[in-house]
Amino acid sequence: MAKHLLKDTKQLYHNFKMKYPSEGEHKMDSLPVLNMNAVEMSNIQIHAGLVKLSSELFIYQKHFDWLKKAAHTFRPMSFDYEFHAIHNRIEKLMKRIDILMIRHNMPRVSDPIVPQFPNSTNPWGVIQCGHTIFHHFHLFLDYATRVLLLMKNKW
């Protein structure tokens, strides 16, 4: 599921970049920080890995919700279907992770606190945030796919 979500996100990001080009890197403090090297990744424990994936997927889902809403205030986006598909896939992956947690007798983690989103009142700010969200989510999904494969080998 994570691989398919990665592919869909890559396509939506490409479409977003084509319609709303932006140069340079942008930052959003509300996004999860991915700071793990290959050694730490190979030593990841199932419980910690699933909790991290679940909570960060929830945060990214809220960011995509914010982006869709913020973008519509300026100009209706032609990506509604793709945004909806990404949202559904995130939801399905979160449910699958919850099932894995139940299967391994792990308590369900409560949803993390929803971060404070930027108060962008101009289209350029929303476009910059969109590029940042897509870029970070793409990196996160690449990480998540690798971690899930490593965990699969530990089961």
Rank of each mutant, 00 (worst) to 15 (best):
M1P: 10
M1Q: 14
A2Y: 09
L6C: 10
L6N: 14
D8G: 11
L12E: 03
Y13D: 06
H14Y: 13
H14C: 09
N15M: 11
M18Q: 15
K19G: 01
S22I: 03
E23C: 06
E23L: 12
E23Q: 14
G24M: 06
G24D: 00
E25H: 10
K27N: 07
K27G: 01
M28H: 07
D29P: 00
D29M: 05
D29C: 00
S30V: 02
S30R: 10
L31R: 10
L31E: 12
P32R: 09
A38Q: 15
A38D: 15
V39I: 12
E40P: 01
I44D: 03
I44F: 11
Q45V: 08
H47V: 09
H47N: 12
A48L: 08
A48D: 12
G49W: 01
G49N: 04
V51M: 04
V51Y: 02
L53G: 12
L53D: 00
E56R: 13
F58D: 13
F58A: 15
I59Q: 05
I59W: 04
I59N: 04
Y60V: 05
Y60A: 06
Q61I: 02
K62Q: 15
K62Y: 01
H63L: 02
H63V: 05
F64E: 03
K68L: 06
K69D: 15
K69T: 15
A70V: 01
H72K: 11
T73K: 15
T73E: 10
F74I: 07
R75Q: 11
P76L: 07
M77N: 07
D80C: 08
D80H: 10
H87C: 08
K92S: 13
L93K: 09
L93N: 13
K95T: 08
K95C: 00
R96C: 03
R96G: 10
I99L: 13
I99R: 12
L100H: 14
M101P: 00
I102F: 07
H104P: 00
M106T: 03
P107Y: 08
P107D: 13
D111N: 14
D111C: 06
D111R: 01
P112W: 05
P112C: 08
P112I: 05
V114K: 13
P118W: 00
P118T: 01
S120W: 01
S120E: 13
W124R: 12
W124S: 14
G125S: 09
G125D: 08
I127Y: 08
G130S: 11
H131P: 14
I133S: 08
I133F: 04
F134R: 05
H136T: 10
H136W: 03
F137L: 07
F137Q: 04
F137C: 07
F140G: 01
L141A: 11
D142E: 13
D142H: 15
D142I: 07
Y143M: 11
A144S: 15
T145N: 12
T145V: 08
R146A: 14
R146H: 09
L148Y: 05
L148C: 13
L150N: 11
N153A: 14
N153G: 11
K154M: 01
